[in-house]
Design a protein around this nucleic acid. Sequence first.
DNA 1: GAGTGGTCTAGACCACCAA
DNA 2: TGGTGGTCTAGACCACTCA
Lengths: 244, 244
Amino acid sequence: MNNAPASPSFRPLYEQIKVLITQSLIAGEWRPGEAIPSEMELAARFKVSQGTVRKAVDELAAENILVRRQGKGTYVATHNEEHTKLRFLRLTAADGKKELLENQLLECNRGKATAEMARQLGLKTGASIIEVKRLLSFSGKPVILDHIIIPAAPFKGLNGSKIQDNNGSMYSMYETQYGIRMVRAEERLKAIAADEASAQLLGVAVGTPLLRIERVSCTYGDKPMEWRLGLCVTEEHHYRNELE
Amino acid sequence: MNNAPASPSFRPLYEQIKVLITQSLIAGEWRPGEAIPSEMELAARFKVSQGTVRKAVDELAAENILVRRQGKGTYVATHNEEHTKLRFLRLTAADGKKELLENQLLECNRGKATAEMARQLGLKTGASIIEVKRLLSFSGKPVILDHIIIPAAPFKGLNGSKIQDNNGSMYSMYETQYGIRMVRAEERLKAIAADEASAQLLGVAVGTPLLRIERVSCTYGDKPMEWRLGLCVTEEHHYRNELE
DNA sequence: GAGTGGTCTAGACCACCAA
DNA sequence: TGGTGGTCTAGACCACTCA
């Protein structure tokens, strides 16, 4: 119905629709795993043509924020399903075999954000945080030692048992317990030598080369919500990456 | 003009157009950096509407195979321009500063593919290959020790001086000298300890943890064309990655 | 069969670029 | 000023899912 691109703010209509849909996701109007309204309904709601909604949804689907299912509808993407559960876990066995993943919780404490951590997570220095340490094992062998920090405010009441429930997927837990979905993450990888504490937990010799993965994960609107440091034994595993 | 999806092979028209465009790229009809025909011309050539061509080109642009420039035309993507030159190089300084990159050629030999290498590159065991070893330095400090293997057939006449010419970018050289563009790559990362030879060349102590990057790069049609093993000192650098 | 997303078309107008 | 890609619309028909 709106024939010309809106003159005041010159951004394409479909980008404005994208923003509106994202805002509804932030507001929790549709939770992870739920269906959003059909293209026709959205078109009516935003007073644009179906094609414009389609382009907005196409891009959100390309960003793994929505999932289209032909004949059924468009859904809010989730880390819960088998296929997408470990989407951010790039570590696989060298021989490509599928492995059983075990999760051992080591610590779960409250604390205050350091200046550096506050900067990473967009908080104020000294803000309340939750700190988790855990050990992930593949087929019984320790492989990843994780140190995870999240702001306490959005994750009220989080404790060790909630983490244990979701068979090791923190992202799955964030979604089902708090409706918070991580849509993007940035990682920095380095090779380091295992120190005494890490070596003992991972069952390797001190000085063993480890892959150090530092990750900041963001929810809708690129808002950082989790900082994570993983130390990985890469003797029998490697980190897969695709460049395009 | 074609109102119904073609009945014999049921694939969307725009996918067929994508294939046709890709074939022209393989055939070298348009070389890296050149403009391809306008959307209207392509639509006429393939006897479809402009919108269908647009969708095909959109996807090829999303895959970094084509580049659209509003008001000018659509171009074959390249590794030559400043912005895209080091697209596959994910290593950056820890402090984010820009650095001067130097390239020191160590070896450039002909050889025969081992069974494993032949498998990786889609060749027959014993096929002729070219083997390159080089050292990349950032601001004078050695950082990456590369071992590169490519099939000899498509790269006739390649030698050390051609590698030196393109200020260290092999991909740039492949394009300008042979019209072969790498569009995709798959990497496997591990942490290993520096052996004697690597340690000496990289100027670190034996046993220093190194980031080991194994990469297979593919040209149009996902045809593998280069295998590469990089050993990286990550004391002052890290490998950046974005997960979506 | 009704409803959803998926494809294709045709035509209008806008923004950008170069001559 | 003319050509290019970019946006938006409207309508037709196809493919898939489910009741």
